[in-house]
Structures are given as C-alpha cells and as structure tokens.
Design a protein around this nucleic acid. Sequence first.
DNA 1: CCGAGTTTGTTCTCGCAGTCACAAAGTCCG
DNA 2: CGGACTTTGTGACTGCGAGAACAAACTCGG
Lengths: 236, 236
Amino acid sequence: MNTGAGSSAQEPHRDIPEATVARLPVYLRALTSLADRNIASCSSEELAAAAGVNSAKLRKDLSYLGSYGTRGVGYDVDYLSYQIAREIGVTHDWPVIIVGIGNLGQALANFSGFSSRGFRTVALLDAAPQMQGRSVAGLEVRPFADLAEIVAAEQVSIGVISVPAPAAQDVADAMVEAGISSILNFAPAVLNVPAGVDVRKVDLSIELQILAYHESRKAAEAEETVDNDSEEGITA
Amino acid sequence: MNTGAGSSAQEPHRDIPEATVARLPVYLRALTSLADRNIASCSSEELAAAAGVNSAKLRKDLSYLGSYGTRGVGYDVDYLSYQIAREIGVTHDWPVIIVGIGNLGQALANFSGFSSRGFRTVALLDAAPQMQGRSVAGLEVRPFADLAEIVAAEQVSIGVISVPAPAAQDVADAMVEAGISSILNFAPAVLNVPAGVDVRKVDLSIELQILAYHESRKAAEAEETVDNDSEEGITA
DNA sequence: CCGAGTTTGTTCTCGCAGTCACAAAGTCCG
DNA sequence: CGGACTTTGTGACTGCGAGAACAAACTCGG
Ligand SMILES: NC(=O)c1ccc[n+]([C@@H]2O[C@H](COP(=O)([O-])OP(=O)(O)OC[C@H]3O[C@@H](n4cnc5c(N)ncnc54)[C@H](O)[C@@H]3O)[C@@H](O)[C@H]2O)c1
Ligand SMILES: NC(=O)c1ccc[n+]([C@@H]2O[C@H](COP(=O)([O-])OP(=O)(O)OC[C@H]3O[C@@H](n4cnc5c(N)ncnc54)[C@H](O)[C@@H]3O)[C@@H](O)[C@H]2O)c1
C-alpha cells in the first residue's frame, strides 16, 4: 500500500464495506449528540447504545477507519467525530441542487438539517412557468433549462430529484449530462444511469408497504394463536 | 407444513426473506405500470428490467410466494399483481396517522401517492396550538392529546413521525401506548420501542452522506489517476 | 401426437455481513 | 513499580443474499 502516490494526508484503509458506510453517518450523529451534552469521551458500548447498534459491530466498523480508540478508555468524541467526517468527506460542505419544487421539494428546501450536516442547497429548479422567480427558503426558483449552467458554475456533484415519476428519468439524464454524479431520487421510478453515477432512492410507499407486510403477518399470527395456541409445540 | 390451522385461505409459503419483502413493492409498482400500458403478461426478464433487478433474483423472490408463473409463457400481470398485493397485505387500505404537521408533515399529507398504494391518511396530529383546527389536505389538524382516541376509533396500526428529533421518542412512546405497532420515522433519532413494534427510518441526511462518501472516493481516485496513471500496474 | 423452443422454478456456489469471544494494550491504584 | 481491571481491535464462525446455471414444464406449430 501507499506505493508512492501519497497525494493526500494519512491514507486511510480502503474498501470500507457498504454496510459500514451506511452506518458511519449514524455514528457521526450520535457523536454530535454526545458532544452537545459536553461528553468528551465514550466507550464503544455507550456509543453503540446511542446509535442503536451492537457494540461489536460498531468497533468493527470503526476499525475499518483505523485505530482511533484507546484500550481501557474508549473514544475521544471530538477526535472520532472528525475522523468519521473526514472519511465520509463532509469536513467541507457539498453543494446540492433540488429539481422539482412542489410539495416535497419545498419541504426539502426549507429543511435546515441539510446545511448543518455538510450540505448546502445552492439552487432550486423547476420546469413549471408559474414557479419561476418565486422565492423558497431564501432561494429563487430557477428554470430547469439553467441546470447545466448552475452545475458548472457551482461545481455541483449531488442532485436531488423530487419531480413526478414520469419526469424523473428525463431529469436524471439531464443531471448526468450536466456533470452530476450522485443522485438522491424521491420519485417512485427506476432510474437508468451510466456507470460511475450513484443513485440512492427514498421511497415512502415502499417503506409503508414493508410495514404493512409485517403488520399483516402480526395480525395473521395473532389470529392463529387464538385458533390453537399450542401450535409451536406441534411444529417444533 | 399446514399442521392443521388452515384458518385463512390458501396459506402461502411462510418466512419470506427481508430482502425479498423489500423488493415486492417494487415489483408491484412495475406491474401496475405495465398494466397501465395494457400489457397483460410479461416474462421475468421484462419485469426484472422494469423493476431494475436481476431476473434470476426476481424469479427467486416470486418463488417464495408460490408458483404463479407459467413456464414457456411468463406471468399474468393482473394475477401476479393481486398475489403480491395479497402477500404484502395491501388488498385493503391501511389507516395511517401523521404526527408533526410541519414542512415535511404537510408535504406527506398532500401526497397523493399514499392513498393510491393501499394507505389512507385518517388523521393529522400536532402539538402546537397554532396548528389546531387548520385544514391540511382536506383534513383538520387535531391535538396530539387525541392520539389514543383516534387510534382506537380508526383501528390504526401504522403511524408516521415527522416531528423534530428531540420529540420523536416521546411521540413514539405515545404511539406504542395507544396501540400502534408499526412506525415510519422521519426524525433523525434512534427510537427505542418494545419488541413486536416495527420501526422503519427514512433519513435524508444519511442518504446524502452516503452519496458524499462515494463522491469523495471518486474525487480521490480521479486525482490519483492524474498523479500517476500507471499505479494499477505497480500495485497489481 | 410430437418435437422444437421458451421460460419458469430451483439448486449450487460464493461472498458479504453480523455476532461471539478473546488476546492485546492501555489505565489506574496501591 | 506491578498487578488488577477495563476496553479496544480482530479472528473465527455462521447465516443470509446474489447470481449463474440447469432441469422441469409448458406452449405452439406442423
Ligand atoms: N410529497 C411527498 O410527501 C412525497 C412523498 C414521497 C414521494 N414523493 C415523490 O416526490 C415527487 C414529487 O412529489 P410532490 O408531492 O412534491 O409533487 P408536486 O407535483 O407537488 O411537485 C412536482 C414539481 O416538479 C415540477 N416538475 C415537473 N416536471 C418537471 C421537470 N421535467 N423538470 C423540472 N421540474 C418538473 C413541477 O412543476 C412541480 O413543481 C413525486 O415523484 C412523488 O411521488 C412525494
Ligand atoms: N423538511 C424536510 O424536508 C425533512 C427532511 C428530512 C427529515 N426531516 C425531519 O422531519 C422532522 C420534521 O421536519 P419539519 O421540517 O417538518 O419540521 P417542522 O419544524 O416544520 O415541523 C415539526 C412539527 O412537529 C410539531 N411538533 C413538535 N413537537 C411535537 C410533539 N411532541 N408532538 C406533536 N407534534 C409536535 C411542531 O408543532 C411542528 O408543526 C424533523 O425531525 C426533521 O429532521 C425533515
């Protein structure tokens, strides 16, 4: 490793598993919460509880970043926060654009949680003429045609899609064309993008349907238990 | 199997893997889209493409529900749609309540996609006095104190939390107390709930941070390639 | 009725992820 | 200074999920 490039600072361990990457932001938030309560250090057990995960899993996850804890003591909250933030890449702010300023887009634009977590909304775009020039969350809504110009000017690499499903693919294509390489998609549509572009999907209906599945199973089980409450003895 | 209970109709194969459950709604949506285009039947290959998954994975997923396809032909769109909907439990509508009618809560209340996918918003609740009595999406905002009453009256088992993070645990506790057993949580907080209660989390900041991680890795890789574009030859 | 063609359902293999358990490494007190 | 205690970091094990490949089953044309 480190075969001579040495371009950036302390090269961290590469190849962090996806499952771990998905949890690092959770740890970061838990650490921030601890720091807000003036807690300077914590054990893996405490942090795991705050993040809602198994402590062994947490330690293993952190070990992918390096050895930032002290045996017998635990982790320094500020130090570990910084290391995770650095690994994720949120030590500096990422510019983000939102396309589709309807119900959801406006809620997202008004959401303060983005800016506090390493992201800065730099532009809101919408295709509808009646949206043009309106001010949402202190930003002027701009025409969708300005996409490429804005992306180039602000060095945007992350785009949020909150347009109706039929328009999502077109918007995604335009984003990719403009140079965006990470997309957060709220539209219930499957997006086709070239390799090298990451898409993450947030789909409320799917989440609710998953809950509904478990809910029906619970209901079915309860009914069964009423029918004959000794079944587990038979099948086992 | 089928050790004598046989309470409900054709008992399907039990123990559907979580990963499959999470994809069934995607298949259902793809099927609905096909039906809208008057397509009566489709092969696993076509459906897989529409859902954005591998066809072998799709067939395996569907096989957990039973054998609803015809070899040499494919799947009947309507029939398969119904079978998946039945398995998920969205053949009838589920009543849902939303707690926290701020930016996000209002967007959710106004979202028509819920009702069309097996869910019906029956009540909007908020603790703030100035929200009381306001009408959002045709529903009157009701006081948070009415939670238990509403849940009992409407047989609600699914609740949506869109309050600020510090209030989320309190709301969740009240929901569980009122009899809700499935929660969709938008607040960036870890919820502690008793066993038997399902919680699913939707966290935008986390999604963006995951994108940011891959984005920084892309950036680092590009830089490295510029530094010395024959590195793969050295390390390999 | 039969054979060619098509597509499902399933088996097998491999890799990733979660959990346990423990040695290594540090702290702290006597 | 040394030993008891605490907590990390990691190796081993297990189970789930993804994907390839193939046999079984069905259709359709002749
Ligand atoms: N509202 C919610 O709570 C919610 C929840 C989950 C998912 N969604 C999804 O998010 C998306 C947006 O939902 P919404 O409720 O905000 O819808 P909306 O109709 O209120 O807003 C959509 C906006 O996108 C704009 N738009 C349409 N086509 C466009 C294009 N080609 N380019 C640029 N802008 C375009 C429209 O002008 C409109 O302002 C939908 O796909 C919806 O399914 C919404
Ligand atoms: N707005 C977004 O796009 C967005 C995105 C992601 C996550 N979130 C999260 O969703 C939650 C809501 O966001 P928002 O932007 O709608 O906030 P908001 O402040 O606009 O709305 C919160 C609402 O909850 C109500 N509330 C507060 N405490 C309550 C309680 N104990 N019981 C009942 N109601 C209560 C408030 O009166 C207010 O109406 C936050 O946790 C936020 O982090 C929002």
